[in-house]
Simulated scan of single mutants.
Amino acid sequence: MMSAMETNMVLILTIFYNAYFLLAISSQLLLLYLMLKCQNRSLHEMRIYLFNILGLQFISTFSAFVLQCRIVPSSGTVAMLCYGPCKYLGNIVCEVLFHILQTSLIACATALIIAFYYRYEMLTNNSFTRSGHYKQLVISYCVPLVFLICEVLSPNDVNKLVAELTVLHPTYGLENYAILGFSDVKTVAASSQTLMLMIGLYGTPFIALVFRKKIIKILHSSRSYHAEKIVQTKSMIQGLTLQTLLPLICYCPGFTYYIYSQYTQSSSLFVEFAVSPYGFVYTIFDPLLTIYYVLPYRRTFKAIFSKHNSTTSATFVHSETARRVA
């Protein structure tokens, strides 16, 4: 049976995830609408990569909401206690969704890198074939696929997880959760998975900054680009850079707690609830960064907003005039 504190924390977490899902899906749908509405020729090919990123973020948002997991690490295992709707569908469904969530998060990181690479190639070679786009996308999914294989091969004995949780956390209401995770984090597969997470977490921003430096250098040294293209490219690169830094900021608390608990064999109910959902918050802001820093989308949004305000003002003036005449 849950303690009073755990019950309250579950309630707060449920409210958070509902608010998170609403905000994240709203920002993603807004970006999708603008991407379909704006037919700027300069973004015709870039949209392939933006659609790829947006699709992966939608998958991770939906999976995170349905799972609503909190991480409970120990010295040799890591358990995921899921309180979301998936618990009514059984552990197998929860486990599949968890694999989808983790893989989509890794795929988001590689998707941002190939978006950087595409912009760099366009500035250096000024051409990119359709087969080149597909080749890039296939390559970007190779890393998440290897990660998924390592994750599937990692030991996941639920009975061992439940037994250890019962001993280490006797006050946890385990019967209220769908429990999944990894029963031995020191195997080759599990260690490889952790290593890939670390490389993805810290390596993606580093690679992005390297590409950013190269792109900015090309823009400053070349005289063949007109001012509008330079401004648009610089703004887009700034947005992509921030998009690679956001996951680092959001994942660090949870990943740091995981490593800390592994080595100190200590845990905190409050920290478990606090850090677990924090890693997904970036999917709310990521689409908004795209809207702001991709100038054609920003201008399209402003045009729609201005048109709406003009229509509202005209309607108000017309109705007010009619009222006074009457």
Rank of each mutant, 00 (worst) to 15 (best):
S104M: 01
Q136E: 04
S131W: 08
Y117D: 13
Y117E: 08
K160T: 14
N91K: 12
F116G: 04
Q136P: 01
F98I: 01
I207W: 05
Y83W: 11
T187Y: 07
I106A: 10
K214P: 06
Y172S: 11
K87N: 09
A111W: 00
E121W: 03
V167T: 14
R130N: 13
A115G: 12
L161S: 10
L101T: 01
I106Q: 13
I92H: 11
A190S: 11
P205H: 09
L137G: 02
F147G: 01
P170R: 08
N159K: 11
H169W: 02
E175Q: 14
P85S: 12
V152W: 08
E151Q: 15
G200H: 00
S191P: 01
P144I: 03
Q136C: 04
S131E: 13
E151G: 09
L161G: 03
K186T: 14
K217V: 06
G84P: 03
G173E: 07
E151A: 12
Y172P: 00
F116C: 00
I114K: 06
V96K: 04
R119D: 00
Y134D: 09
L148V: 07
V188N: 05
N91C: 09
Y83F: 13
E175P: 01
N156Q: 15
T171S: 14
P144Y: 00
G90S: 09
D184C: 08
Y134L: 13
K214H: 12
S127R: 14
Y202F: 15
C94K: 01
L197N: 12
N126V: 04
I114C: 08
L97N: 08
L197E: 09
T204L: 07
L165A: 05
C150F: 14
L195I: 15
K217R: 15
L161Q: 05
I92Q: 12
P155V: 05
T194L: 15
L97F: 15
Y134R: 15
I215F: 00
T194M: 15
Q102G: 14
L195W: 09
C108F: 01
L201D: 11
Y141S: 11
P144N: 04
T194R: 14
P170I: 09
N159M: 08
L197I: 12
T166E: 10
E175F: 08
C108V: 14
A190C: 03
C108I: 12
I106L: 15
A107P: 04
Q102K: 12
V185H: 07
G181D: 05
K214R: 15
N159R: 12
A115K: 05
Q136H: 13
S154N: 03
T124A: 07
L165V: 06
F211T: 02
A115M: 12
C142R: 06
P144M: 04
P155Q: 08
T124V: 11
V152L: 09
K135G: 06
H133A: 08
T129Y: 02
I106C: 12
